[in-house]
Amino acid sequence: MLMQALAVGLACVLVKFGAWWGAMGWDRPMIASTITGILLGKPVEGITVGAALELVYMGTQSMGGVIPQDYGLGGIFGCAFAILVSAKPSVAVALSIPFSMLGTLIYDLFKFWATSLVTRFQTHLENHQIKAFKRLWNIQAFVYLLMWFLLGFISILAGTSAIKALVNMIPTVIMNSLTVAAGMLPALGMALLMISLWSKKLAPYFFIGFGLVAFFKGTLIEVAFLGAAVAFLAVIGQIGKHTNGNNAQPKTAESAEESEEEDFYND
């Protein structure tokens, strides 16, 4: 179990690094699960479980560093338990949820520490100690990654046998309930996405997308293709509107531009 624990610890570091550095999206459950699968020597399982995990967490996303649920850790641990205790995808999804909550708790603790460092950074600058400033920055980045490594390492080392026993104990009716829940949970993900995209005027587009798949059996690639065309149609009138406005009014006419801006918000 030591090697597996090291592998999951390393997966945590990679996922957390690729989530922040360049915002590469390594914390998306699909990718987090793929990385974990690769490190545990079962990449194909990692990829497949990743799809089930992504569906549950699809609507959760990090905005300005605030993560409502740590979907990256959910992806890692869901995949790890799917592989290590051969849990079904629906059970893996259920097991990932407590870890996704633990992740936000631990990150909150780290953020408190980072907040306490803000004044120290400032003091270093006030004292003209740029080297100390740089050193402190390196330390916090290192501590951040180390923290995730330890979480992955310890959880797998200490928790796997307990989880294995738990998974083997689950009766059929609960197993079925978990499968049903895993099928239903993507609805929450979709609802969360709608919250951030929704406006009354744009609501019909949701139903167009739904109908294209539900009634006409379209694929997502086909919907993306049509979506781009429809989006262009929807804004093209307004593009024309603002260029005309600019041509008619010279740039110095501040008031004219303002009223035009109001037009845009009012229409």
């Binding site: 979709m190 929704w198 997308g209 294209l212 997502l220």
Partner: peptide
Amino acid sequence: TKAASIVGLMMVGAMSAQYVTF
């Protein structure tokens, strides 16, 4: 922003149909 929201909403609708099993 508006164009991105339109494509996004269509994709959400499509994925609701594709991936929510109930």
